[in-house]
């Protein structure tokens, strides 16, 4: 049984076929990339996996559960976390609160227990705080814990979004263009970060990216889609030399 498998995924919006017959299996611990020109349907694939869209056809299985049709928050609870293409932090909250929130879905206290500060909630609050601090430490944002999240520079906001996703305790992490808008140094740091958290948390990473240098460096396997259809898959070397991929990106000669 595969750790994660998507079979025959199809997403239609009215007459538009955004994704057509998409198949992928992921093994535990892999870093797999999904690339393709703008509008190819990459983010639609993520939105189906993360529960934002219900696929028109096909099934998604994740650790023996069929997850398509489940709500986004339920899927997160099962162990799939995501980041967004455009950064979506809770802007007016502090850095640490942004991360602490991610533990909330595992809080066992009731709201009354929390309001009256029963011992269980105090313990959980302490755990949330410590857990969030550890994760911030790991991504290198611990010293900024009390800052407002929208006061951080762009690259650090991206890191914070990854930290927030990590705090939900995922097994599969979906990164939607994590390197977008980063300078070469920041991108290099991001490569190290993704590999480090994969190793530390036993994650499987599935990512979308346009920065080819980043993708080629980090991915063990990749898949290319164009107009919703898979046109190639394989190792980075294979993809680099694939004629259909070159055509899709550069057009016909």
């Amino acid at each position: 049984m595969d750790f994660f498998a998507a079979k025959n995924l199809t997403m239609k919006f009215g007459g538009l076929v955004a994704v057509n017959d998409f198949n992928i299996t992921l093994k535990r611990g892999e870093i797999v990339g999904l690339i393709g020109p703008n509008g190819a349907g990459k983010t639609t694939v993520f939105n189906m996996v993360a529960g934002y869209y219900e696929p028109t056809e096909g099934t998604i299985t994740f650790s023996k559960n069929i997850i398509n049709g489940k709500k986004a928050n339920e899927i997160t609870k099962l162990g799939i976390a995501r980041t967004f293409q455009n950064i979506r932090l809770f802007t007016e909250l502090s850095v640490i609160e942004n991360v602490m929130i991610a533990y909330h879905c595992r809080v066992k206290s009731t709201f009354l227990g929390a309001v009256l500060r029963f011992p269980l909630y105090r313990r959980e609050e302490k755990m949330m705080h410590e857990g969030a601090m550890n994760i911030l430490e790991e991504v290198g944002l611990a010293s900024l814990a009390k800052e407002r999240s929208d006061s951080l520079p762009y690259g650090q906001q991206r890191r914070l979004e990854i930290a927030r996703a990590l705090a939900t305790g995922p097994e599969l992490l979906l990164l939607d263009e994590p390197a977008a808008g980063m300078n070469p140094q920041e991108t290099q740091d991001l490569v190290d970060l993704v590999i480090r958290i994969r190793d530390n948390h036993g994650l499987t990473v599935f990512l979308i990216e346009h920065d080819m240098k980043f993708v080629m460096q980090i991915c063990e396997r990749m898949k290319v889609i164009d107009y919703g259809t898979t046109i190639a898959e394989g190792t980075p070397e294979e993809i680099q030399n694939n004629e259909r991929v070159i055509k899709a990106y550069l057009g016909e000669a």
């Binding site: 993360a50 529960g51 934002y52 709500k71 986004a72 928050n73 997160t76 609870k77 976390a81 995501r82 967004f84 979506r88 932090l89 809770f90 802007t91 007016e92 909250l93 929130i101 991610a102 909330h104 879905c105 595992r106 927030r164 996703a165 705090a167 939900t168």
Partner: peptide, 17 residues
């Protein structure tokens, strides 16, 4: 508050909006 600032992001961190 998370639901107020960004409902989609709130759901992404497991919050039942």
């Amino acid at each position: 508050k998370a639901v107020k600032y960004d409902e989609a992001a709130a759901e992404a961190v497991g919050i039942n909006a």
